[in-house]
Design a protein around this nucleic acid. Sequence first.
DNA 1: CACTATAATGTAATCGGTTTCATCTCTTAC
DNA 2: GTAAGAGATGAAACCGATTACATTATAGTG
Lengths: 349, 349
Amino acid sequence: MKHVTVYDIAREANVSVATVSRVLNNTAPVKKETRERITALIDKHQFQPNALARSLIRKETGMIGFILPDITNPFFPEVLASFDRETRKLGYTCFLCDTVSSDEETERQYARESQYLGILMEKQVDGIVMIGGRLDLSKPDAALVREVEEVAKRVPVLMINGNLPNTKIHRVAVDQRLGAELAAQHLIDLGHRDIAVIGGFVHMSNTQQRIQGFRTAMRNNGLEVRKEWMVQGGFSVNKGLEFAEQVLNLPDRPTAIMCMNDLVAIGALKAADRAGLAVPAELSIVGYDDIPFASFSIPELTTVSLMANEIGRLAAEMLHKLIAGKKVPSLHSVVPELRVRQTTAPLQK
Amino acid sequence: MKHVTVYDIAREANVSVATVSRVLNNTAPVKKETRERITALIDKHQFQPNALARSLIRKETGMIGFILPDITNPFFPEVLASFDRETRKLGYTCFLCDTVSSDEETERQYARESQYLGILMEKQVDGIVMIGGRLDLSKPDAALVREVEEVAKRVPVLMINGNLPNTKIHRVAVDQRLGAELAAQHLIDLGHRDIAVIGGFVHMSNTQQRIQGFRTAMRNNGLEVRKEWMVQGGFSVNKGLEFAEQVLNLPDRPTAIMCMNDLVAIGALKAADRAGLAVPAELSIVGYDDIPFASFSIPELTTVSLMANEIGRLAAEMLHKLIAGKKVPSLHSVVPELRVRQTTAPLQK
DNA sequence: CACTATAATGTAATCGGTTTCATCTCTTAC
DNA sequence: GTAAGAGATGAAACCGATTACATTATAGTG
């Protein structure tokens, strides 16, 4: 029951290990007869070369580390899937590095990201992708950034969507500002002037950027941003429900709500339902992210796509180039798309 | 910029590599002074031992392969996350092995599972978890089963939820039959007698088992199963919509619909909406799976939990025991729970 | 003080492959 | 007939750790 090795094969085939290795990798001509003898033995013993030993000398492992904050958030599987699909064509396998677990305090998150970087380095991965988490804050963790830069010197690192202004780390990112601007402009085009913005965390860069985009659109149209209609502090359905109820209970209520993500938008849908407001007839709602569920809700959610597939695909493409030692631009920007569905409608006078 | 090794550290510290290894692993006493000299150098060079080399000789890699059919299906991230959470406490890292991509034909799926088994063996993972896919069919792929059994001889393998009657492979699985029975009984208790069952694939074991559970409940209550109300053939929202419309358009329409998963149930909700039927007042709907979104829909979906967290946790526990060489029961059955929410109500006469 | 147990360290084998270099045989060309 | 080039193979070094075994220094004991 012992594991069979090249030596076992070599001995039984009456050749040297070098020859076995040659048929394994097609790296040099081997006499047809010898090759057949060897492959027969390989089949017979179901021999599989030990990837550890191979990687040790080849200095490439075919492994890529994918660090993400929470696999349970439907956005991440989406980009991971598309990344993995591309990446596996070239023979890579991904390590999943999930940095938060819902049941743990956030303060351990940094340690987790840092810890994973260490593990991935030890395991000699060929490349690392990082998305979200501590690097997505409006003030990204300086120590972590420094660490990532240090890691990037030794192995190709690709950031997705992070907020890293003064750094040489390669990135692919959607233009969040533009996405929010598109959403806001859409509402404005429908005649809305009283627009609330709910959800998100002001200390997170994505929220900040989206709010900036919103403000830009408002300014471009000469509209005023009312601060009692800006309610931030969470990304969940329940928070969305809470925030939406808050703005809908104001004496002066908005006619449209722009949500910082789809979960919040779903919460807002709930709030509208509870308040007896018809969507989109009496209240327009737009989400952000275009999670798979966005097109399943009733009514179907108008939202801004995070371009998960495109991001994953591009990330794979860039990382492979980096691994191959090719030059790549340090930032690849992806243009978001507005998905107009059923939760937005022209303002009714 | 060359990678530093134990030899570099040893040379610079004027000791042998053995001593360096000792401080690295705390495997034998080292003079305090020497230890400090070495750790200082380790810090200085940010030395990290090469896990490949270590694993090669230790014969353990701290890597676990997790084979699943589609990370985009929200159930899988859920169990993966809880599995990973447990497993990482013990120093393991998971390979993600996603066997299908939406854009590829199903016939390549078996090759993918088989291919991943090969890759994982080569990479010398300490254990493998398999969930769904080709092993979840009512007639599981015999060749694959044989292959899995072969693999299981060399490395601990744990199945989640598969359908493997005559095999010694260790499994943790929810009792699907019981879950469906709970759901059906719930509807019956509410006074429903005319119950449709939509969604699923009859060639998949989970669908088969759930339908069995449904029949059991009906039989126990002396109710009749009407075959025009049994519509199978898909697991998606759109299919659910289609199937629900089909049964709702029958001259003799059911008062409750039991769906083979939550996506189908969401489709059914849509169908009810289009047909102008109030849920749950005029139509009760129950789903299956309890995906995260189930509690976000409006109204919130009554459904059967797949116990993703519990499954993941248990799988981790069992696999660790297997890796440690301990005896474990070959099947650990998990009892499903009915989550009663807002889409079911007493039958209105 | 001699003797033994333990601490501290070094030497070299080992894990299982790949790869360089050397050797030998066999064509093919001139 | 011999030199050159390609084909086929083997011996041994190597990747970077761990560890069995050997050796020396130190401490403790009677």
